[in-house]
Amino acid sequence: MKLGIISFAHMHAYSYARALQDLDGVELCGISDENEARGREAAAKFGVTYFADYNALLSEDIDAVIVTSENVNHHKHVLAAAKAGKHVLCEKPLGTTLEEMKEMVNVCRENGVKLQTAFPVRFNTSIQQGKKIIEEGKLGRIIAMKGTNRGTNPGGWFVIKSLSGGGAVMDHTVHVVDIMRWFMNAEVTEVYAEAGQFFSDQIDDCGLLTMEFDNGVFATLDCSWSRNKAYPTWGDVTLEVIGTEGTIFIDAFGQKLNVYSDSSGANWHYWGDDMDAGLVKDFIECIKEDREPSITGEDGLKAVEVALAAYKAAEQKSPVKLTILK
């Protein structure tokens, strides 16, 4: 199977590329990037051809592409790939407006290509273990959830709204909302949020969401870029689940070594399973087996819908009901 990568704007492109090259029977054939220097460097690093124009990459004999461009460019890249008949694994957030995401989902369906949203956290082994515990009914009925997906302000295009569509709330709402939806097979019906700018003056960098689900569960999610330079790691993904018969707490990156270095300070080094590799492997398998992607375009859309509602709620200072359900 042959793949290409459109844009290395998002740093996850590097781990996806490595994951592709580690898979048997899979070939990374080309990289396109509007930023020529970045594209050429990545192409050289992975030993593949550089394409200045993504349409040229799409006209090659490849089966699928991974889209890791700036958030606002997902739309045009996914549409072009679909029309060229290439399956797509698209970085999260799937898009920045509901209309664009609906079009992405529809165009991929019309052209008979698979659209998978890149939610690698579903492939974190501890998260998968958590889902198993819930499905076995060990927690009884779920009452509430409390999640965090904190990070460090990534800077660059992430803090330019015309490229990212939003700051921390856009960037860090979707992973854990997707996990909550996936754990419960339930949809968010209402969102409230407080958001703020504390760490820079460019874009929202703190957010705290409260959600109601259609199964009567309530949840909060802290999506802030609140980890500072001296903090021992970049951020976290944690999820606490409260059930009638018990609770679980998942710290998705809790498998770590604490390292204290005179040259690089205090750092946590993660040694758990590589979830990005799991995501890429799953995408390849879904193409090979010609099955529905395990994480669909609709999943990507629904998670972004929550982030967009959070912005609206924060602005109007009252909860926002979600209307497009199931």
Partner: peptide
């Protein structure tokens, strides 16, 4: 803004998640 199990009828379980916005702008969970 807050949510809890109040009114969701769970026997001898209470759980609440509050969001506080302060006059100085900061946010607390």
């Amino acid at each position: 803004y807050a949510k809890s199990v109040l009114g969701r009828s769970f026997n001898r379980i209470d759980y609440a998640l509050l969001t506080l916005r302060f006059e100085n702008g900061m946010i607390a969970h």
